[in-house]
Design a protein around this nucleic acid. Sequence first.
DNA 1: CTAAATTTGATCAAAAATAATCAAATATGA
DNA 2: TCATATTTGATTATTTTTGATCAAATTTAG
Lengths: 252, 252
Amino acid sequence: MSFQERKKKIVSAVNEAGSLSVFQLSEKLSMSPATIRRDLGDISDEGLLIRTHGGAMKVDDPVLTSFTGKSGSNENNKEAIGKLAAAFVQDGDIIFLDCGSTVFKMCRHLKNRNRLKVITNSLPVLAELFDAPGISINLIGGEFDKQRQAVHGERAVQHIDQYHAQKAFIGVDGLSAEKGLTAHSELEATITSAFVRNANEIFLLCDSSKIGKDSYIRFGSLAMIHKLITDKDLDNQINAAFREKGLEVVKG
Amino acid sequence: MSFQERKKKIVSAVNEAGSLSVFQLSEKLSMSPATIRRDLGDISDEGLLIRTHGGAMKVDDPVLTSFTGKSGSNENNKEAIGKLAAAFVQDGDIIFLDCGSTVFKMCRHLKNRNRLKVITNSLPVLAELFDAPGISINLIGGEFDKQRQAVHGERAVQHIDQYHAQKAFIGVDGLSAEKGLTAHSELEATITSAFVRNANEIFLLCDSSKIGKDSYIRFGSLAMIHKLITDKDLDNQINAAFREKGLEVVKG
DNA sequence: CTAAATTTGATCAAAAATAATCAAATATGA
DNA sequence: TCATATTTGATTATTTTTGATCAAATTTAG
């Protein structure tokens, strides 16, 4: 039985029972407690259940479901990218978090950081992180865009320009060695540009499906980016092309 | 049974009973009093209940009631006030909406307005109104306060000062003819003051339980207010005193 | 106000659970 | 096929949790 099979069984068993111990699961699935523990660790990292001492309980999110990110394409790869990216965030950091589903995936892996300051225009990010005890959030003000569930516009850019962060985690709609960073919305492009010019280190989170494709607004070059964080499916030739241009690529 | 499970049981038991002693909980959950005390300490640190000598009681204003916050005391009166206040909002208006449970109650009655512009620092307000087709929202930026689920601070005040609205709908923690408007948080007081100085017409929403009582920060006089919107239980003498001072009172 | 009773928080040792490590088993791929 | 990588289960050291004890703090009663 593979991990993926077990994962589904574990999640549904825990959801049904409310909570189960490692030993109950171990018996139910005929697996050793060590394996169950590993599984539970992985699953709770994804937020599908809550790890407890001795077992796990189901996650009941009575809250905030209206703002939690919509799940779309390339779910697993985005999840992996989020986890990778989160590893670059340390306690005490001040970071910009863009709106966008891949950046949103980072959040769940940031919840136990301490003294972390997050500056964001994304409501899903806020909803995910606002109750984390070690994180304080600075919300960017301006016009609220209901499509993107984020704040945009002139006022938002002004707001960002008044801050400086050590690291910025951003997303794009297209990325290629030739055209650089592209977006399909002027609003998003201006916000992302503002993040870039006010942070020391820029991390671009971009799953392989967007790489090699261009959207219609060009708003930045590869030179702006310090690290590209992407997934295991990135084409090797493209990867080589990026590296040749001096871009550091982190591949899941 | 893990702490996480107990925590849920304790919180719901205390919320149901209103208050419980350490020993009642100890017996109910078959745990030693020492463990219950530790749990209560942790839980009250999160603000999910209030620690008392000998036990714990439920928190009146549940901190984490999600963004769609259902509020606590005087529910019906607040609901009525909200409806009354909403009647003063017309299509095409630009309005400030404060954070606070009474102002939040207005929102439900605003959803079908057209060309309405709402400027707010309250996440519950945003959550309630963001999908209304006729309403555009300007979110005030700044430090996010997880307790109040709203944005506060210096930056937020600057933001507000860049806008002007026809009407402001605000709340207070205490109101009396003698001391005027009072609040129990500096943060809230400065935000409310900013709304007041940048709007033409100020509507104060305040249920009768807060009238005649003073909180500890005085931040405004009755003269600032154009209309007080309150409930049917307002004492007639106090009502008369307000009117004598030139305050227009709308009573439910 | 003082004294008795109760409650608490701190400390400690035992028990339980975990993470880390390693070797065997299994799967993967050239 | 063989070599390599991944997954699993056992072992062990570490961490977490728990209940008991006791001095200090708080409440209650006189």
